[in-house]
Amino acid sequence: MSYDSNVNQAAKAELERRRKLAEETARRNLEGFLQGCPRAGEIRRELAANAAGAARAVLSGGDVHKALEQRKERGMALRREYEELLGECGLTRRDIEPQYTCPRCKDTGFADGKLCGCYKALRRNLAYRNMSAELPLDQCTFDGFSLEYYRNDPAAYGRMQSILRSCREYAENFRANSPNLLFWGGTGLGKTHLSLAIANSALDKGFGVVYGSAQRFAVALERERFGRDNSIEGTSVNLKECDLLILDDLGTEFSSAYSNAAIYDVVNARLMSGRPTVISTNLGLSGLEERYGERFTSRIAGNYALLGFMGKDVRVQKIQS
């Protein structure tokens, strides 16, 4: 999979930051240890001399086995003393050795001549973040979702109270194979707010989340398919492979044979791989079938938990109040 230059540069910069932090922390700890415990410095020099002596013993001939055993015992005794001194200073060997985020590649991004998995994951998460940039996540929380706008309609109030509870539980228990959700109902009933609240929670748990409107993704997929914009290269794979995809306002995008097929391809691929998707739409099942066809609607009806939103447009109520 390809990424634009900004993602690659950001990933490299983050790896370099991690590597420098690990090495600088270890260096400072070691310098402090050696300054506070002169004997530790002597041991390090004696260990180096002992290793050099072992090499000379091999080259000089004689009873090499005996000489090497003596050197080995000496080295072990010195290392034990060194560990004891570390302990007396409240340190362990981990404190004076770089603790890389990824021990396999030591935060270089490459291991055994190949891209390390940590580098791939970092680029992927940065791409997800870019795709969901500028979302009002801090404004859309579960605590900020008010049921007061539904209280005048007992049926709507009960339904929305149940939906809010279900969404909270979904977010609290979110995992890589969580079920799929379909939010459907009229405009201004809180579908976007609750889907963003779920995104917030999943991001806090460290999952890779991609959030966007169906229109935005349809345009990006078309541009990627026909090579019109290299900056969004990898959109299709990101949508299919992120931990959670939230597809907002399905049915409001410009309809074309390609966009409908592309959206179906993403939804179906995620179903096949068991990755969760949250879709919000103003259309009911009959509207989805009219717009996208029976095959698409059948996949949704059979594999999504359907949450029907009720009430009066909250945005209109806010203006009128």
Rank of each mutant, 00 (worst) to 15 (best):
N173G: 09
F174L: 12
F174W: 08
F174K: 05
F174C: 12
F174S: 15
R175W: 11
R175I: 05
A176E: 10
A176M: 13
A176Y: 15
N177Q: 13
N177M: 13
N177A: 15
S178Q: 10
S178D: 14
S178E: 08
S178C: 06
P179W: 07
P179L: 13
N180C: 12
L181F: 09
L181C: 09
L181R: 04
L181I: 03
L181E: 04
L182I: 00
L182W: 02
L182H: 05
L182Q: 04
F183D: 06
F183S: 02
F183I: 00
F183G: 05
W184T: 11
G186D: 10
G186A: 14
G186R: 02
G186T: 01
T187C: 12
T187G: 15
G188R: 01
G188S: 05
G188I: 00
G190M: 07
K191E: 05
K191H: 05
K191I: 00
K191D: 05
T192W: 02
T192S: 12
T192A: 14
H193R: 07
H193L: 11
H193S: 07
H193F: 15
L194P: 00
L194W: 02
L194Q: 06
S195W: 03
S195N: 07
S195V: 01
S195Y: 03
S195T: 04
L196S: 10
L196Q: 15
L196T: 06
L196K: 15
A197L: 08
I198G: 07
I198Y: 05
A199D: 13
A199P: 03
N200Y: 04
N200V: 00
N200I: 00
N200A: 11
S201Y: 08
S201M: 12
S201G: 07
S201I: 00
S201P: 01
S201K: 13
S201H: 05
S201W: 04
A202Q: 09
A202D: 10
A202P: 01
A202N: 06
A202I: 01
A202C: 14
A202E: 06
A202S: 13
L203R: 08
L203F: 13
L203V: 09
L203M: 14
L203P: 04
D204F: 09
D204A: 11
K205A: 08
K205G: 03
K205L: 04
K205C: 03
G206R: 09
G206P: 00
G206H: 08
F207W: 12
F207E: 08
F207I: 03
V209Y: 06
V209L: 14
V210T: 10
Y211I: 02
G212C: 12
G212A: 13
S213V: 01
S213P: 01
S213G: 10
A214M: 14
A214C: 13
Q215E: 12
R216I: 03
R216E: 11
R216L: 09
F217K: 03
F217H: 14
F217P: 01
A218L: 10
A218F: 07
A218R: 15
A218Q: 12
V219D: 11
V219A: 15
